[in-house]
Design a protein around this nucleic acid. Structure first.
Length: 105
DNA sequence: GACCTGACGGTAC
DNA sequence: GGTACCGCCAGGT
């Protein structure tokens, strides 16, 4: 369902600056807790659009999809948003975590 | 139409 | 506490 992707984009667009969420959180919000992979797959298609896909990381806070962005766009944008990094390619997910289920219920 | 792969997650060992 | 394996949904070959 292409509508599925639309929902993913819509949720990702709601992520406030300086905050990040996880694939699992988005998937859970869409009703498919086990479809975290699909979320990342969908974001891959919007990596070059206006969707802030860089604010979505895995459950460990790692920028697993940075390779799909040109250069270090993902890391640079997050740093620009004052997001705390615990590692060169890992954000402080526990500190900036944003749950769509609590903001868009 | 069947099999393989993929920006992940949770549980088991 | 860290590593390994299996499970999920969709899409491409």
């Amino acid at each position: 369902m292409d509508d599925y992707y639309q929902r993913v984009y819509k949720v990702v667009e709601q992520i406030p600056m300086g905050s990040v969420t996880t694939y699992g959180a988005v998937a859970s919000f869409l009703g498919i807790a086990s479809g975290a992979r699909m979320v990342g797959y969908a974001l891959n298609k919007v990596a070059e659009t206006n969707i802030p896909a860089h604010r979505v990381v895995n459950r460990n806070g790692e920028l697993s999809g940075r390779a799909y962005f040109p250069d270090d766009t993902m890391r640079e944008r997050l740093k620009q948003e004052k997001v705390t990094f615990v590692d060169e390619y890992q954000v402080d997910i526990d500190r900036h975590f944003w749950d769509p289920n609590e903001e868009m219920e």
